[in-house]
Design a protein around this nucleic acid. Sequence first.
DNA 1: GCAAATCTATACAGTTTCGTCAAGATTGAT
DNA 2: ATCAATCTTGACGAAACTGTATAGATTTGC
Lengths: 160, 160
Amino acid sequence: MKLTSHEEYGLRCLVQVARRGEHGSATIPEISQCEGISTPYAAKLLRVLRRGGFVKAARGKVGGYTLALPPEQILVGDALAILGGRIYEDGFCGRHAGKKHDCVHSADCSMRSLWRNVQDAVDRVLGSITLHDLLYPHETGLAEHRFTVLRTPARLHTNS
Amino acid sequence: MKLTSHEEYGLRCLVQVARRGEHGSATIPEISQCEGISTPYAAKLLRVLRRGGFVKAARGKVGGYTLALPPEQILVGDALAILGGRIYEDGFCGRHAGKKHDCVHSADCSMRSLWRNVQDAVDRVLGSITLHDLLYPHETGLAEHRFTVLRTPARLHTNS
DNA sequence: GCAAATCTATACAGTTTCGTCAAGATTGAT
DNA sequence: ATCAATCTTGACGAAACTGTATAGATTTGC
């Protein structure tokens, strides 16, 4: 279970837009230079973020990218889902049935429960962190010990 | 953030060894047929599990695979780490520095805190589930709502 | 209108992962 | 000894992912 490059660098590009675009807009050359990646690569990642509704683009001589929402309203988990997908999502079982038509464990699948619980744990973390938290980790406590106490979710996935 | 095929099918093979090898040993043809994957693929995954110390192999006419430990002593998280790596591990920052020699965020990196917190959340789930839990989900509560209450960890990673 | 700066889009090669193949090594039964 | 069943290993092609290249479209300012 590793992070994809899209997730890591895509999120970094989003942070750069938030930082550098606070009073204006951030351009692809600026962002790519700040993160040490090529301009076409930054452009590709920003396109994904734009189509996901996280940034807005302006063309032309004074163009660039700005956030589509205030950083407090952008959940890191939402951006990551666009950039790299989710661990457990609809159709999961159909993609792991081997060569058989139906998943071998379909009737009573402990795997499914496992992955859903993992996904829930990740969601509890990533669903509580906003882009603002990444920008100002010391104010929000991200750098210290934010997740020592997790709220009890209303309902956890079961096997049904 | 998706599961790799090694993680999904590798863990399934481990479950098959536990199930079918309870009173004897499980062979590659048996395992591959049960999971609907090819025998060479099952063999490759079982090799990874063997080198990770989770199963033992016996050659010869009555050979096959058995668990190297009782299922209660095999943590699902340990097997998955061998099969597919971890989200956050040593050297993480060096692999995401773009073209620059040092990571741009090295001094005070909110990304690092983020990924470590995600990894911790996953570890709390996967570090509390054993192979026995996957085999008997109803006895152990995996199928219902095992993770509604998470213990508070002794210490969470900080940025230092 | 024109040029410069910007974003947009598709196509391309390099690398990694996925899954298979084929040949070899070991063991037990006859 | 021989055979059959088993695991072991390295190599291989196909698919997906990474990152780049190239050409095009849009806007601003002169």
